[in-house]
């Protein structure tokens, strides 16, 4: 029974640090786990090859670290137990940093944080809103200019009803950032978007990636929707996604990854890769500053 066939196919996607350089015989091997089901971050093409933003990212940072990185495919549900029994060295699978998870694992610095956008019909008043367009505002460290833009957005939303998803970090963020604006809370993102299309709400809060998807889908159906105002990150929106290591172990390895992530952020590599795969810049500029 050739039960490992798929595993071998995935191994074909094994990422070798510095494909163009000669590998040292004793180059360290670092095993990273991912799920392979989360397009466009990490997913599998029909030939079994692992592709997406994170495989490209790993190519880049492992080259910087001069280590040979290998993927281990692990179902997301069993990820942390498998980490603890050393099936691999770290998880790199769009794992968001949360306080709860931080009790079980040690996180690297985040390598990606998806911006959050406000979205509205292109035909209405909000669709014409121009302030802050094309900029990204970090909620945790706003300049006076940023604060002015947020004020403009708040003013534009004065008489509007805005939809947010209950389970996401969006509800908390929205109340903190735009206090007093009327909010409608949804259990499911799809229902929120249906209401936006039907005009039952004036605007909605969603991740930049799915916002882009929604806009292009609506465009095919002949309806115009736009993301307006600045892209928003940080603060109550969370810290982003990071690698996870066994608690209290691998401190050196974690530092090496942190250093490589900082470098890849500083020279714009992560920005480029995330625009290529996700359509938005999810790099975290604070990383470069350190």
């Amino acid at each position: 029974m050739n039960m490992k066939r798929r595993m071998l196919l995935v191994s074909a996607a094994m990422l070798v640090a510095g494909a163009s350089t000669v590998l040292a015989a004793d180059q360290r091997v670092v095993k990273l786990a991912t799920d392979g089901t989360y397009a466009p971050f990490n997913y599998t093409d029909p030939s079994g090859k692992l592709v997406g933003f994170e495989p490209d990212l790993v190519d880049d940072i492992c080259k910087r670290m001069n280590v040979k990185c290998e993927w281990v495919i692990q179902n997301f549900d069993g990820m942390i137990p498998a980490l603890n029994e050393k099936r691999f060295d770290a998880i790199l699978a769009s794992l968001s940093i949360t306080d709860e998870r931080a009790k079980a694992v040690d996180f690297s610095i985040p390598y990606y944080a998806g911006p959050t956008r406000l979205i509205a019909s292109g035909d209405g008043k909000l669709g014409q809103f121009k302030s802050g367009e094309g900029s990204t505002i970090l909620l945790g460290s706003m300049s006076d200019k940023d604060k002015a833009v947020i004020g403009d957005v708040a003013a534009a939303l004065k008489d509007a009803t805005v939809g947010v998803e209950r389970a996401s970090t969006h509800a908390k963020f929205f109340e903190e950032t735009f206090p007093g604006v009327k909010v409608k809370i949804y259990d499911k993102g799809e229902n929120m978007m249906l209401d936006l299309v039907a005009g039952r709400i004036d605007a909605a809060v969603d991740g930049a990636g799915s916002t882009l998807n929604f806009i292009s889908e609506q465009e095919k159906a002949g309806k115009k929707f736009v993301a307006f105002g600045p892209a928003l990150k940080g603060g109550a929106l969370g810290k982003g996604v990071a690698l996870a290591f066994r608690k209290g172990e691998e401190t050196e390895l974690r530092e090496e990854f942190n250093k490589a992530i900082r470098e890849a952020t500083a020279d714009g590599s992560i920005s480029k890769m995330s625009v290529k795969w996700i359509g938005v810049d999810g790099s975290i500029p604070e990383n470069a500053a350190k």
């Binding site: 039960m3 798929r6 595993m7 799920d35 392979g36 089901t37 989360y38 397009a39 997913y43 599998t44 093409d45 029909p46 281990v72 495919i73 692990q74 179902n75 069993g78 498998a82």
Partner: peptide, 16 residues
């Protein structure tokens, strides 16, 4: 367990 049986394949394909 990450074993590639039908459901896992379906998950991978659906997600990818």
């Amino acid at each position: 367990t990450g074993l590639v049986e039908l459901m896992r394949t379906i998950d991978v394909a659906a997600g990818s």
